[in-house]
């Protein structure tokens, strides 16, 4: 079972973990990743973060990423949650959870989903610093992280 949610409200890590754990008695591993809003961007502190996305297309792209993960690894279920709207430093922003029989599948799939989400899903961050708003630039490190999975593409 794969679940994708885009929402303004927060999520509960324990509840998400519990749902993945309860998917099946064959679940032997659950890997979860939670991304938080940092209080700095490019060495300057931020007051808040605003997240824009492309409704409809974002869900489609996330579904494609999850589908690819299911082709590459033996997964029992996954959950992807991404928050949008106004967020503050230390807020939870993204959750990826993967359940599988064995840990290697869950570890790798979670990392793959997160790497692809960062470089392919249609989200854009805008930060507020000293009353000034500016759009966050994409980072080469994120593209490098995602491209390591490309070489083994089916």
């Amino acid at each position: 079972m794969n679940r994708i949610r885009i929402q303004t409200h927060d999520f509960d890590l324990a509840q998400e973990y519990h749902q993945l754990r309860e998917l099946s008695s064959t679940v032997g591993a659950v890997v979860t990743f939670t991304g938080l809003v940092r209080d700095f961007e490019l060495d300057a502190s931020i007051d808040s973060l605003s997240l824009q996305h492309y409704p409809g297309m974002t869900e489609t792209l996330l579904q494609e990423i999850v589908d690819q993960a299911n082709k590459r690894w033996q997964l029992i279920g996954s959950t992807v949650i991404h928050r949008v709207g106004e967020l503050l430093p230390r807020d939870q922003i993204v959750f990826v959870g993967v359940a599988s029989q064995h840990r290697a599948d869950a570890f790798e799939a979670a990392q793959f989903i997160m790497d692809y989400l960062k470089t392919k899903a249609t989200f854009w961050k805008q930060v507020s610093q000293d009353g000034q708003q500016h759009w966050v630039e994409s980072k080469d490190a994120d593209n490098d992280a995602a491209s390591r999975w490309d070489s083994t593409d089916d």
């Binding site: 991404h82 922003i93 989400l117 899903a121 989200f123 994409s138």
Partner: peptide, 10 residues
């Protein structure tokens, strides 16, 4: 038609 700069989610 939508114009999409590099994405910065996650």
């Amino acid at each position: 038609v939508a114009f999409l700069p590099p994405v910065t989610g996650g």
